[in-house]
Amino acid sequence: MHSIPGRRLIISLFLIFLLLPIYWLVNMSFKTNSEIVTTMTLWPHQPTLENYRRIFTDESWYSGYINSLTYVLINTVISISVALPAAYAFSRYRFLGDKHLFFWLLSNRMAPAAVFALPFFNLYSAINLFDTPWAVALAHCIFNVPLAVWILEGFVSGVPREIDETAFLDGYSFPRFFVKILVPLIASGIGVAAFFCFMFSWVELLLARTLTSVNAKPISAIMTRTVSASGMDWGLLAAAGVLTIIPGALVIWFVRNYIARGFALGRV
């Protein structure tokens, strides 16, 4: 009953619209440059793995992936570990300035990265963290910590407070209750929050590019450099792009039912 006429056609057309540009990228990544530039082919006629081989053997390319993964992982760990206790506090207690604090967190999630690019550059240069994964990881905290707090607060609120009370009556100390009871209960929530921290840190470019120059350059910045160079290596660019899609594509399956919740900051 809750459907509209022609729904199969609509959803199929929309999915094709979503997949076509991605297909084109994958298609190009398996072509040689001469095939890309000279002919228009719907699928690679002389399929080649040369583009991927170059990325995996050239250090200036694959180090970009390692740099990106490093700061993304540091960021995810920091975000989740500071957000967990805070989410519990917001969900269970009333305290001085709680609502203002919650709003302030949200406003940081929404703040445009462009505003912070320059001050971050000054700040992290001043404390000698410039061009390290730590600079990017800490900078990304500005939107990922609030995100994690908001998502986790939703999940903690789903745990009945009787469970807390019973545990404390049973003589659990607060840290023990937290680790032994609460964390296992909201394990899926932690997974979802971690996934979104990972994702938003992975897709961000502006701050990551501003805060690194040589040693910690993320893959996205290496790609933009290639884009601006004349005499494009399209196949290589396409292959690098495909490789950045893979981490997300691999884990969507596990969070498919929570994805709306995550993007709405835990409020659906």
């Binding site: 897709v203 470019l205 790609m223 792009g241």
Partner: peptide
């Protein structure tokens, strides 16, 4: 899928 692709990609 499109939501999880890096923005510059």
């Amino acid at each position: 899928l499109p939501l999880l692709i890096p923005w510059n990609v």
